[in-house]
Design a protein around this nucleic acid. Sequence first.
DNA 1: CAGGATCCACTATTGGATCCCG
DNA 2: CGGGATCCAATAGTGGATCCTG
Lengths: 232, 232
Amino acid sequence: MSGADPAVAPADEPALCRRARGLSGRTIAEVARELGRALPHAPGRAKGYVGTLVEAALGASAGNRSEPDFPALGVELKTVPMSAAGVPRESTFVCSIALDRVADAEWAESAVARKLERVLFIPVESERGVAFEARRFGAPLLWSPAPAQRARLRADWEMLADLVGRGELDRVTAHLGVALQIRPKAAHSRVVRLGPGEDGSVWTLPRGFYLRRTFTASVFATAAGGASGMGR
Amino acid sequence: MSGADPAVAPADEPALCRRARGLSGRTIAEVARELGRALPHAPGRAKGYVGTLVEAALGASAGNRSEPDFPALGVELKTVPMSAAGVPRESTFVCSIALDRVADAEWAESAVARKLERVLFIPVESERGVAFEARRFGAPLLWSPAPAQRARLRADWEMLADLVGRGELDRVTAHLGVALQIRPKAAHSRVVRLGPGEDGSVWTLPRGFYLRRTFTASVFATAAGGASGMGR
DNA sequence: CAGGATCCACTATTGGATCCCG
DNA sequence: CGGGATCCAATAGTGGATCCTG
């Protein structure tokens, strides 16, 4: 074993960061072996595997509960697939939308605001041509939104929550929002959920909030010594 | 006739701007008719037609000479095809590259810097679905680069001129440069010109400097009341 | 040929769909 | 089902090729 007992949650942020840095440079296969976990059975059938693996490696509260991964620290954990150029390859899921309750919510109380207040990003190599099990973890980033970033997220959230609350879900597409967007969140497109419609409730596809790839890219770029914090 | 005699160059910038504003809202067909010019014979065979038409309409010195379109004013004229959203659809040609002379040139003396010091942009509607002759001119923009824009152009130019001067023309692609890029400028790809190579001179494709679409977009966005002048 | 540009095949992006696990 | 995410067909973007005129 290489560090503290992974089954136990880290006591504080420094301890968490130490564990996270311990992953840097190591491969998925190495970490899986140390935790006694099998690698995914089939290539392309590995969605979510790395996220779960990192949860175990860092001692996050496992499972599907709607609280931070590290409840005592208020820290949310996200793995981010990175291209060789150091740019995220995918958007980042934030949380599902409670379609029936978003109407009269306030930004400060929202699940999005709470989840994003403190996030530990773990970059993972993700390049066609590098075998899944050989992909390496990168340097972790413990992030809280800068004022301009928080303002951007809030503006997007208020615009989107307003649309949902007004029953205009059918106007909501992933095109909306600069930093934050709404996209489907379901096993497939026939799944339905009750949500606000033009006349009362309608059956609709479950949705989630996601961070755009460009936003996450700017978060990493800024942290790496970038200039502005937002913008190109 | 709607304004001053188009055959005569405007006396000063205000006069030029008045003529340019006179085009706003009018169609290519209307302007062509007033100047007694035939419309292009075939659709898709109209490259350059609008540029030449506007030169005539505004009293620019016609022809292929390497001086500003309005020599007395030091103003360069560029038509810009615009999408319905008000964003340029194409990059903007600036000038050809003297491959054999760019090596020891200085930015301030360069053709790029001189051409871009004062530019009159004339937007033209350019949307599949709007017939060529029915496309309308937009509000003109008389522009000089803001300090940040000039610095960006200079940095790009120096990087590119350096590559060309060092005989590394084969490493120059249109990917290089944030605001300014180098692309082929010839009738077709078999045209060759003598330029600097790794060992003396080599035959190579003629090239030109172009403004990227994103840069021209930011120029228009800023002038339209935008915030930053550069950036997204 | 130099200046006026646009065309278009290919690549990059991404919105919507989908998959695994507990 | 909710949390962990990635997949991929369709669209947007653009680099290199091309076209017209004087």
